[in-house]
Amino acid sequence: MKKTFFKILVKLNKLLLPKLYKVDPMKLTNLQKAILGYKYWALTNSLN
């Protein structure tokens, strides 16, 4: 149940949130860093 929830969440993140893979991490704003951390958290939970 938990794994499927996070897999759905990751798919929604891909559709709704901006893509930050081409941006230098040192130049991100605090909001962009928070989005990146949230996306990472959701992805790692979907893989476990």
Rank of each mutant, 00 (worst) to 15 (best):
Met1Phe: 05
Met1Arg: 09
Lys2Asp: 13
Lys2Thr: 02
Lys2Ala: 15
Lys2Glu: 15
Lys2Leu: 14
Lys3Glu: 14
Thr4Ser: 12
Thr4Tyr: 12
Thr4Ile: 13
Thr4Leu: 13
Phe5Ile: 05
Phe5Glu: 12
Phe6Ala: 07
Lys7Trp: 02
Lys7His: 08
Lys7Cys: 03
Lys7Pro: 00
Lys7Gly: 06
Ile8Arg: 11
Ile8Pro: 00
Ile8Ala: 12
Leu9Val: 02
Val10Gly: 03
Val10Arg: 13
Val10Cys: 08
Lys11Asp: 10
Lys11Pro: 00
Lys11Thr: 05
Leu12Gln: 01
Leu12Tyr: 09
Leu12Thr: 05
Leu12Asn: 07
Asn13Cys: 02
Asn13Thr: 03
Asn13Glu: 07
Lys14Arg: 06
Leu15Thr: 04
Leu15Met: 04
Leu15Lys: 09
Leu16Asn: 05
Leu16Thr: 01
Leu17Gly: 02
Leu17Ile: 03
Leu17Ala: 04
Pro18Lys: 03
Pro18Gln: 04
Pro18Thr: 03
Pro18Val: 03
Lys19Gly: 06
Lys19Met: 01
Leu20His: 02
Leu20Glu: 01
Tyr21Phe: 08
Lys22Ala: 08
Lys22Gln: 09
Asp24Ala: 08
Asp24Val: 03
Asp24Asn: 15
Met26His: 10
Lys27Gly: 00
Lys27Asn: 10
Lys27Phe: 09
Leu28Pro: 01
Leu28Cys: 05
Leu28Tyr: 02
Leu28Val: 08
Thr29Tyr: 04
Thr29Pro: 00
Asn30Ile: 08
Leu31Asp: 07
Leu31Thr: 15
Gln32Cys: 05
Gln32Glu: 15
Gln32Leu: 12
Gln32Trp: 03
Gln32Ser: 06
Lys33Ile: 03
Lys33Cys: 02
Lys33Arg: 14
Ala34Tyr: 12
Ala34Cys: 12
Ala34Ser: 15
Ala34Leu: 12
Ala34Asn: 14
Ile35Leu: 14
Leu36Pro: 05
Leu36Trp: 07
Gly37Met: 10
Gly37Arg: 13
Gly37Tyr: 10
Tyr38Gly: 11
Tyr38Val: 09
Tyr38Phe: 15
Tyr38Asp: 09
Lys39Glu: 15
Lys39His: 07
Tyr40Met: 13
Trp41Pro: 04
Trp41His: 13
Trp41Cys: 13
Ala42Ile: 11
Ala42Gln: 13
Ala42His: 08
Leu43Ala: 15
Leu43Glu: 15
Leu43Asp: 14
Leu43Ser: 15
Thr44Leu: 12
Thr44Met: 14
Thr44Pro: 06
Asn45Lys: 15
Asn45Ala: 10
Ser46Glu: 15
Leu47Tyr: 09
Asn48Pro: 02
Asn48Ser: 14
Asn48Thr: 04
